[in-house]
Design a protein around this nucleic acid. Structure first.
Lengths: 231, 231
DNA sequence: ATAATCCTAGAACGAACGTTCGATAAGCCC
DNA sequence: GGGCTTATCGAACGTTCGTTCTAGGATTAT
């Protein structure tokens, strides 16, 4: 009967971060369950993970889980919302006071990758279970996502304006997201660089990619030349 | 008892493309089922799609399906293998005879995007259900995937050598894959450009990105400067 | 001490799951 | 026309699914 409508910070209106060390006992317990659930969803996928898997991972009975949330779908919603809100919150903090357009784009990339690598599992659940949430839950997450995209688009547009560049912002931004989000499929902490280094490298590729240099020895726009068969 | 061990071209040794218009009756029928299944997997995900969903989509009874393949997992395997083999085959065809390193990279991008947009659903199943296949099936698909990656890496390395560039090939290639593969999450044929145009734009971003121009007005390597908080 | 509230678990619910069985036509060889 | 093989089906198998019911131990308030 209770079930997550009562919580003050995790499932309630507040979007502040809940570092799993404060809040009521209920909140703390729920946060722990969310952590475990994130891990299981990450490993087996949302549909592939059963409530019994979650109960095992949380060291709690099947029925006990339902005291903290009222459906599997709502659990996914809570995970996604919490994760996304945190990324967005941190980004806003960091952008504050920084004026230089290039710097702002680099901050975006840095913030994104840093969170992605520090919370790889949560982020995989966010990316991979993108469209399983239905109706109300789904559209709320989609709205946050759209807001996040809009911010990135604005940053890129500002850089474009400041440097007088010409390119499709939409494709540029979506390509950037592609680069960054794809990381969850390949990043291996034992082999690959850390977030800072990756942010620099991807930032370089992206920023130089948009700023068309003319001394790079490239034959620009030859892709649809005679040698490439188009089907 | 029969079940897909018998087929000549789809599940057999041949990796040639099967345009669903030739081959035995069995092969043609199976190809049709694969098409329908691809659509359902794309919409509901592998775990989310039930055999009953597939039987409805294929206009065939539940039991009838099992005449053509012997498990849901094998069905996914067939879809992934066929899709991937086709991309790889076309790529090899197109690379033949082309020498210029930049051109070869552009061909790779063009080939990839063209197939992605023409077979968006199949490709989503390929990307999205990446790690659900277990043991034998999984490792076979993984091997094809590795081979594909290896080819791209070689192309980029050749370009790198030809132009005397300095960057991490691994990160560059994986970023490129990210850009391209992410498309399935956002591309809208009514709004976005076609494969040729996208290949040109992404090719430009990627190629200019790895060829560090010095006249782009960028302040390179400032990301880890004083203004960016690293956690 | 007693009442109220919080928290947890065992057992069960009906529904849906992937898969198999046995039967049944239809088409072909001899 | 009898005996294969091919192709399809309805019905059922045993299992697992998400969820709920009920009851009782633990904790807190009075």
């Amino acid at each position: 009967m209770a079930s997550a409508t009562r919580s003050s910070s995790l499932s309630g209106r507040s979007s502040a971060r809940v570092p799993a060390g404060q809040g009521s006992r209920f909140d703390r317990r729920l946060a722990k369950i969310l952590e475990h659930a994130t891990e299981v969803f990450c490993e087996k996928g949302y549909e592939g993970a059963s409530m019994r898997d979650l109960s095992r991972a949380s060291h709690m009975s099947l029925a006990g889980l339902y005291y903290y949330f009222d459906s599997k779908e709502k659990l996914l919603y809570l995970i996604q919302k919490y994760t996304f809100s945190t990324i967005l919150g941190r980004l806003r903090e960091r952008l504050e006071g920084v004026e230089d357009p290039e710097q702002r784009v680099r901050i975006f990339i840095q913030n994104h990758l840093e969170y992605f690598l520090a919370n790889q599992k949560a982020v995989k659940v966010l990316s991979h279970e993108d469209d399983v949430l239905k109706n109300g839950y789904g559209s709320e997450i989609a709205a946050i996502k759209r807001e996040y995209y809009r911010i990135c688009l604005k940053l890129v547009d500002e850089l474009k304006g400041a440097q007088g560049l010409e390119f499709s912002s939409r494709i540029a931004v979506l390509s950037l997201f592609g680069m960054m989000n794809w990381i969850y499929t390949w990043h291996n902490p034992r082999v690959d660089a850390d977030a800072g280094e990756l942010a620099r490298e991807m930032g370089d590729i992206f920023l130089h990619g948009i700023c068309r240099g003319r001394n790079s020895g490239l034959q620009t726009k030859r892709a649809s030349g005679p040698k490439v068969r188009v089907m």
